[in-house]
Nucleic acid binder design. Structure first.
Lengths: 198, 198
DNA sequence: TTGATTTCTTGTCATAAGGCAAGTCATAAC
DNA sequence: GTTATGACTTGCCTTATGACAAGAAATCAA
């Protein structure tokens, strides 16, 4: 049978410690966000750590000219938090926004820290999540240096087609490091090449 | 008086626990690297965590076409390690290379983990270093999206002029996301504009 | 010293992507 | 319905950067 999402998420990391698993999942409480909701606003301290069960989110920040730049997309199954603001208790440069209705589980900084202190395996898991996020970010930004915009578009498209049905073109564009105008043209060529035109 | 580098590095984080400070610094042993030495080779597991006391290092990886891309420069005072490989015990995608003779202090994964388990303050410090590295990386790569190559060059130049006297142009170029040809031209224009021509 | 190798510069040309503005289309507000 | 607003497309032109190749300068080896 399928336990709830929290349980399915953490169980593989604690196969032999059901009481610890229970202690952890009990602290992640369900929460929902309507489409367009701001989950975290830049300038505030990120105080919640989320497991995204369904729906899509994006992170964005403002560049020096005041333009929004989407820095991340979050898909179902992802962990959502801003590491620096969350752990250093500092104002966030980034905002999080729901791009569809979402369901998630959340835990506060205080609760998470308490769990880290009391459950070494959970501490290790938390660090693993952080370093995996970092590695994924490095890998993604490497493409900004050595792949063309069309290649970056194709990679994102293959990785998450559903995202393209819910995210705005301008958000995808700034995530890929190009303008919405360019993305519109790239998309046209891409669909033409791949005979995906409706 | 000035204690050694390890002590100066860690003392501000443990002002009230000299015995813990001593336990930590005792596990960081001095090491030197000659210019051009490969400190970590891609494919191997990163097993050492370094505090760089003097000299400069770079991290690099290979892109899909087999070109070297410099992903980071490390200056005196920096912490040097590859988080994913180090903590996940996985082969590294990146290599580290000394670009000058260097002196550093190193601690192994086993020793660091032991210290993390036994000294909660050190654990917090370790996490702080990791999230600061991540935040710095995010900030730097954001410039790849919204700043021109010349602006990225100027920022790096201001941030670390000494680096420009020791790092090769092609390494700086791939770090900035441009070719060495373009960097050569950008540098010429930059020096002209700023009346820095010798 | 000499030659070999690497590093850096410069020229010519091609191209990816941006800036700007107009136009279409869909959606929400009234 | 009509209008207003935002989302996306397209055209025209500019520009930053890349590709390639030749030459200059620096470094290293013998």
């Amino acid at each position: 049978m399928s336990a709830d999402f929290r349980h399915r998420f953490f169980a593989p990391f604690l196969p032999d410690a059901p009481e610890k698993l229970q202690a952890i999942t009990a602290h992640f409480e369900p929460v929902t966000f309507p489409r367009n909701a701001l989950i975290l606003e830049a300038g505030n301290v990120s105080n919640m750590y989320y497991l995204l069960e369904s729906g899509y989110l994006r992170a964005f920040t403002m560049d020096v000219e005041g333009n929004e730049v989407t820095t991340a997309f979050y898909c179902p199954g992802n962990v959502v938090f801003e590491p620096y603001s969350f752990f250093m208790r500092a104002p966030s440069d980034e905002s999080f926004q729901a791009i569809t209705d979402c369901t998630a589980y959340q835990v506060s900084f205080e609760q998470l820290n308490m769990l880290f202190h009391s459950i070494p395996e959970f501490r290790e898991l938390g660090r693993g999540i952080l370093v995996k996020e970092f590695a994924a970010y490095k890998k993604r930004t490497l493409a900004l240096i050595n792949r063309s915009a069309e290649e970056r578009y194709a990679a994102l498209f293959e990785n998450s087609r559903e995202l393209f049905q819910v995210a705005q073109l301008k958000h995808i564009a700034s995530y890929l490091g190009i303008t919405d105008t360019s993305l519109s043209r790239i998309r046209r060529e891409f669909l033409k090449k791949n005979d995906l035109i409706k």
